[in-house]
Computed example of a mutant assay.
Amino acid sequence: MKKSFIFIASFLIILISCKETSTNKTERSGEPDVYNVEDDNAKMNQAMVDAKNSIEEFKIALTSKNTSYEFFTIKQKFAANDGAEHIWVRDIQLVDSDFMGIIANEPVYTDKVQLGDTIKINRASISDWMYYDEGKVVGGYTIRAIRDALSPEEQAAFDAENGLIFK
């Protein structure tokens, strides 16, 4: 569980204040880094569309009872004063036909939720999903978009810092 929280906390992604061709990282003392991405970033917007369009794949994995699958998370968009904030929700469960989970990141720009809140996922506001399959990330479309925008040196540091292996 600790591994999943640390992992999820590493990927708070906020859609504001950055150039289309770069990723701006805000480092916070004692808190995970925040990656800021402009609303019109085509690659990030496509990543969110791809995640939303493939949510059924996530649901199938979640309900499969496959013991090699773990750390199911969904990222949801929340309104903020100056745009939107996309926050990871952990410990995902399917209740009837609704995804439920716990806010996994300390919000920076929104006051709509707080760390530790249990929420029902708004399917229209899903911006990403992921889980591990034998230690490899499945999904994580927005994480991949951020990583792909980094220089090779930054990618190496990103991978080492987060211990990510993509499927």
Rank of each mutant, 00 (worst) to 15 (best):
N162F: 01
S125K: 09
L15G: 12
P107F: 00
K136P: 05
N81C: 11
A145V: 00
L164W: 11
S17W: 12
F71H: 14
K52D: 04
E85N: 02
I92S: 06
L12F: 05
K59P: 10
S64I: 11
S127F: 12
E57Y: 10
P152I: 00
N41P: 04
I6T: 15
S64Y: 07
E134V: 07
N36A: 03
F78H: 07
K75V: 09
A51W: 00
K3F: 12
P152T: 01
I121F: 12
S17R: 09
L94A: 07
I102V: 15
T23M: 04
Y131K: 05
K25C: 08
V95Q: 14
I55V: 12
N162L: 00
F78L: 10
M130A: 13
A149R: 00
I103Y: 05
F5Q: 15
I6R: 15
D159R: 06
P152N: 05
K59Y: 08
E134D: 15
D98W: 07
S17V: 04
K75D: 07
Q76S: 13
G135M: 10
N36E: 13
K75G: 06
T21L: 03
D91Y: 14
Y109P: 01
D33N: 10
K136H: 08
Q46C: 04
I102Q: 11
E106S: 13
A47P: 02
E153Y: 01
G30N: 10
N66G: 06
E161C: 11
G163K: 05
G163R: 03
S127W: 13
E20W: 11
A124L: 15
E154D: 08
M100K: 15
I55F: 09
L94E: 11
A145F: 00
C18G: 14
H86I: 05
P32Y: 01
K136G: 03
N53I: 04
A156G: 05
I121K: 02
F58V: 07
K65Q: 14
A145W: 00
K120L: 14
Q155L: 02
N162Q: 06
D96Q: 13
G140H: 04
K59L: 14
H86P: 02
K3T: 11
E27V: 06
Y109T: 09
Y132T: 10
M1S: 15
E70V: 05
N41I: 03
A47D: 01
Y35Q: 02
I121L: 10
I13R: 01
E134M: 08
D82K: 09
I55H: 08
R147K: 10
T110D: 06
